[in-house]
Amino acid sequence: MDVTPQGTPYDGETTAAGRRMLTLARFPSYPAAQHLIDQLSDAGFPVERTRIVGNGVRSVETVTGRMTKGKAAVYGAGTGAWIGLFIALLFAIFTIGPVWWGVLLTTVLIGAVFGAIAGFVGHWATGGRRDFSSVTALEAAEYEVQVDADLYGEAQRITGQSVR
């Protein structure tokens, strides 16, 4: 397990409910911290009295590709079609018989057309200042698994984490 053992338990954290939390372990990745919580859960530990705290949080924007007016129109059409489908489902409550299929097709097509126009115009309005698409996520430099102070010893016993 890629864990950094603690010299002494960190007891500087108190939750909003006034519970004192001790750091059981630190990890460089979130999945590793999740694994430790899963290990505690499998042993019957009350995991509702633990938490994973990300330290050194930063925003990371991953560029996924070039954005053109055509791509913006296609993405807008897809979004508009979904909105049209939602509206069609609302109309379905009041529509009886096979007429519903016509309502469905019409609202999806109208939504796609308006979405395509909105996507094209929205991208065109930027004037080329943002010709790329991206996804933004939050990442942390490290993740601490913290446990209620009164359950710290039991958590250590279950996970084999020793204080050095």
Rank of each mutant, 00 (worst) to 15 (best):
G111C: 07
E142W: 04
V108E: 09
V145S: 08
A116N: 08
E142V: 00
D131T: 13
F132P: 00
L109A: 14
I110G: 07
V135N: 13
A116T: 07
R130C: 01
F120M: 12
G115I: 05
V145M: 03
G115Y: 08
V113R: 03
I117L: 14
A137V: 10
A116D: 13
A116W: 05
V145P: 09
V108D: 09
E139V: 14
E144Q: 12
R130Q: 12
F114H: 03
D131N: 15
E144Y: 07
V145C: 08
F132I: 03
A140I: 03
E144F: 07
T126C: 00
F132V: 09
G127E: 06
H123P: 09
V121C: 12
E144K: 09
F120N: 09
E142F: 02
A137M: 06
V135P: 01
A118T: 14
F114M: 12
E142L: 01
V147M: 04
V147N: 08
V121M: 13
V121Q: 10
S134R: 09
Y143H: 10
R130N: 13
D131K: 10
T107A: 09
G111E: 11
A112E: 07
H123D: 15
E142C: 01
S133F: 12
T126W: 01
L138C: 00
I117R: 01
R129T: 14
D131E: 15
A116M: 06
A137C: 00
